[in-house]
Amino acid sequence: MTPDQLLQLLIAGLTIGSIYALIALGFVVIHNVSGVINLAQGEFAMLGALIAITLTGETALFNRAWTVNFNLPLFVAVMLATLAVMGVGALVYLLVIRLSHTNSVIVQIIITIGIAITLRGFALIVWGTDPYRLPEFTPGPPIPIGAAVLTRQDLWIIGSAFALMALLYLFFQRTMLGTSLRACAVNRMAARLMGINVSHMMLLAFVLSAGIGALAGIVIAPKTFMGYDTGTYLGLKGFVAAIVLGGMSDERGAIIGGLSLGILEIFAAGLLSSGYKDAIAFLVLFVVLLIQTTGILRRRRGIREAAGV
């Protein structure tokens, strides 16, 4: 393998890795604030992409019974789609998570799976089984880097992922709201005693995660086909990325985990066999979980995980 091919694989890995990182980030934000691992995270990405696609062009919905033609400019469509999915995130919290008072992990798991398959089912009814694609954000020839090339969409994906991460960092570190969220993550009881409305913070966490997931789905939509069932795999890989390094509670771990998972997957597919590309994430998961169930970066703060959350 030449260095140029290596570079090309690295670019491809970083691109898909930024998507995994964003979805992993969504998992961590919800888990830190509410203690719930939302297995419907990938469905937010799928919904974001499909809604954006619907808003930008002509789409036949409900099994071709109803054709809509919004033809909104891309930027507006992205904004509206993200807002819509944030609304879905709020509904998920208000209608489901807030109402369930269970300590049983099995029941919690079944509930979030219920959310995931409900969203998937709604998407199936609205958009059918067809795969959809968003047009490239800025069409044009790819940018050469040495002998490798970077497509404009790759640049959009990597760029917007990192921009979003930076914004989130500022939000969490520099704003009162972000600090309140972090307080809930450290100790919910203490946060409540400090006058923070924990229930509102959980709602905010779901809305924020839904938005992050939606944007991840939207930026990847010009590169891969999106359909009602695409979210499952995206969600599972985001889960793996969130867990392997950061043990589901560390944002940096989730980002690095996502990027490395993307790179590893592309390299394994490029060097070994592309048929088993989707198995890589799970092989990584098995190996890491068996070594250390709390994430490699988080050896000491693993009490919550050890208790079975």
């Binding site: 409900t118 969203l119 089912g121």
Partner: peptide, 26 residues
């Protein structure tokens, strides 16, 4: 209801059923 619907549409019903049962009667 949905003429010519294909795919496993029943999963919507499952999802909602699952959430309801797990919230009301775990």
């Amino acid at each position: 209801v949905l003429s010519g619907a294909s795919g496993e549409h029943q999963i919507v019903a499952f999802g909602i059923l699952l959430i309801f049962i797990m919230i009301l009667m775990p």
